[in-house]
Write a protein that binds this DNA or RNA. Structure first.
Lengths: 219, 219, 219, 219
DNA sequence: AATGAATGAGGGTTCATTCAT
DNA sequence: AATGAATGAACCCTCATTCAT
């Protein structure tokens, strides 16, 4: 056990609250009350609220990236000129997300909220911190993806990646709400795995879509 | 002019701040200072911060839905058995979003943030308020869309719609950040119209994607 | 009444507490409790604790300097080549201090503590703020003083002024303690006027003292 | 080495910080961080923050008083009816202060701040602790001083001593600030010995000043 | 002899809101 | 219609201290 018991209680409580309410709406008092520890404990163990956010960031971003990195290595074996379909690569992402989820029921929502947060204008520090963490580990994955999709310019690829991210971030960070709507509307209890599964063909198709510029530009 | 001058100043200032910082991070003091009005003015004119949020919600959701409703009517003429391609329907959405943008540079980001907010667990009231506003007006549009996409179950369609929403919400509400990354990375100044344009084929393809259940379920 | 009732209550309470306990030891909660106002009132009226300190600074420094400025003008009449004895100038200072005291029993101690505070390394802002306030108003006074004392270099004069200041600051800011020692030791109830009075010949003599460099430098 | 290495590191660090920032503004965390020891070490070695203050108090007050006591003995030889000029006695004080300074660059400022602190209303314990330490050792010194100055009542002498103390306490505890003003204003790098030297004639003259009651009482 | 972990109390500040005018 | 003043509640954080090891 690397972290103290108290620090782990804090992390666990914080993840649940962050996942449900978002980061700014979650207060230190809520966290420490839920973790049944002293209010000062967060600052003792993590320095500040922002420090706690960075700690959960590292806790989940690291394994996520590692999983993908390893999956790529395993898939390629030794050869460096293989290609992998984007469909398969999307599956890897989903499996990596499931890995993240292992530890904790709320982990996945929180992880997605974290990605969302990192794109806020004011969160340049967090954004660069996270980017620094993953950009090397995901390099080969991104190269493989780029190689498989239909030819497009770099910035087109950039935006498409963020369209994908948006789908994931929005539906997974709001999973609780969406699941309850699904329950009311269709009387079905959806599992998060199910949503990950559903995302694969949609994201793949989106990535592969042929750019058609004829219509809209007439606007 | 239905609203008083003060109320309009408040709305304008609030939109810009909501767009940049998000709703919970934006304070009444920031809003009233930017609008150059008294601190109490928001409560006076809109009852509460939540009231102000609902006001901007109505201000932008209404024209958005109206635009789509009208576009559908125009497209269909009188006949009720026509079909419209999903691609064309996506274009309608993008044009509707551009309509929203007319009024104000920040409006689109804010509108997207509003949608995001409405899916928070704690925002049931806002969510139902918004749902109440749009569900009738968008009914025909959704039916047309449903008719054009490959056959799928209702809940599959429900999730796909939210994947689409996610792409829009994430990239447009964080447009400022993404644009500045694009600037740094590719040295291109991207316009929001450009992003809307790029989204059309991706979202259409995502919607149309064939569900392929063979791989992942073995997980 | 320029300031609101609440702001004045705060000032009054703050002066008493600052005078007794010093600035860093005095808390906002103590102040607002003593003033019987809401905790947030200090920040509302003065922006911050530092703002409150600057407000009391201005409140007392201004009349003090004005008194001296006016006293000098009156004494000189129209003529600009008169000389005034340093003894008389010291009396002016003491009378100016009594003026400060008028408003409030604790004002003088607090005013002296304020001077003390302003010489702390960390209080550059306050120091410059205060210096900015008084340096013009006291210019003629200081020139007169300089003219009357035995010839010495500028920096010698600088240090002597601060020796004088030290006598005033130390004994007046700690007047309460010193008075109670006097009570125990000599069974006398000393008034602050009495101390001011006693200071005059001592400070004058100190200022006028002939520099004698023979002894100590052999050290 | 009487004290443990850790305790000495703490003392050294604390002196520097106390000297620069004053006692209440200096935190245990700052001290232990600067001393590179555990946060709990201060309480372990000195019982409390107040205990640490008392420790530095003893560390410097003791040698200071001893120096003066010995200097008086040496000066008097065996005879008990000699007189010593107040000028010479002031020199002794300055030499004693230089002794204090030997150990540590910040010691003198801190020692003066300590005297200042001891006159705070709330520091009765510290004040009596210090008084208890020095009053016997300084008895003969004070008698000699009393004998040399012009005749005055006991309480007049009491106040004059505190005027002197004020000059020393104020200028030496704020030496860093004053030195930097001197640098800016007169472009001179002043040494603390220089200030001590300058104080001698001023303090002596102040002590010796004839009380002149004619003017001010008319106020 | 020494320390990492933890804590209760309290620090200054800011929040959205309300009230009297 | 509008606002300056004021407020209760809550914010994050830091304090000196203690405890188990």
């Amino acid at each position: 056990m690397q972290r103290s018991k108290t620090a782990n209680q804090i992390l666990k409580a914080a993840e649940a609250l962050f996942s449900e309410q978002g980061f700014p709406e979650t207060t230190m008092r809520q966290i420490t009350a839920a973790a049944d520890v002293n209010l000062a404990a967060v600052n003792y163990h993590f320095g500040s609220k922002q420090g706690l956010i960075e700690a959960v960031s590292e806790k989940y971003l690291s394994p996520f990236c590692d999983y993908i990195e390893n999956a790529v290595v395993e898939r390629l074996g030794g050869s460096s000129d293989k290609t992998v379909t984007s469909n398969e690569l999307m599956e890897m992402v989903m499996r990596a997300l499931l890995e993240v989820r292992q530890g904790n029921a709320h982990a996945l929502s929180m992880f997605m909220r974290l990605l969302d947060l990192s794109y806020m204008k004011s969160q340049t520090v967090l954004r660069e911190y996270m980017f620094h963490q993953y950009h090397e580990k995901l390099e080969r994955f991104l190269t493989l993806l780029r190689d498989d999709v239909s030819p497009m310019e770099d910035d087109e690829f950039f935006w498409r990646l963020h369209f994908l991210m948006g789908s994931m971030v929005f539906t997974l960070s709001n999973f609780q709400t969406l699941a309850s709507i699904e329950k009311n509307e269709f009387d079905k209890e959806v599992e998060i795995e199910n949503v990950l599964h559903r995302m694969i063909p949609v994201l793949t198709a989106g990535l592969q879509a042929r750019s058609d510029k004829t219509y809209f530009c007439r606007l």
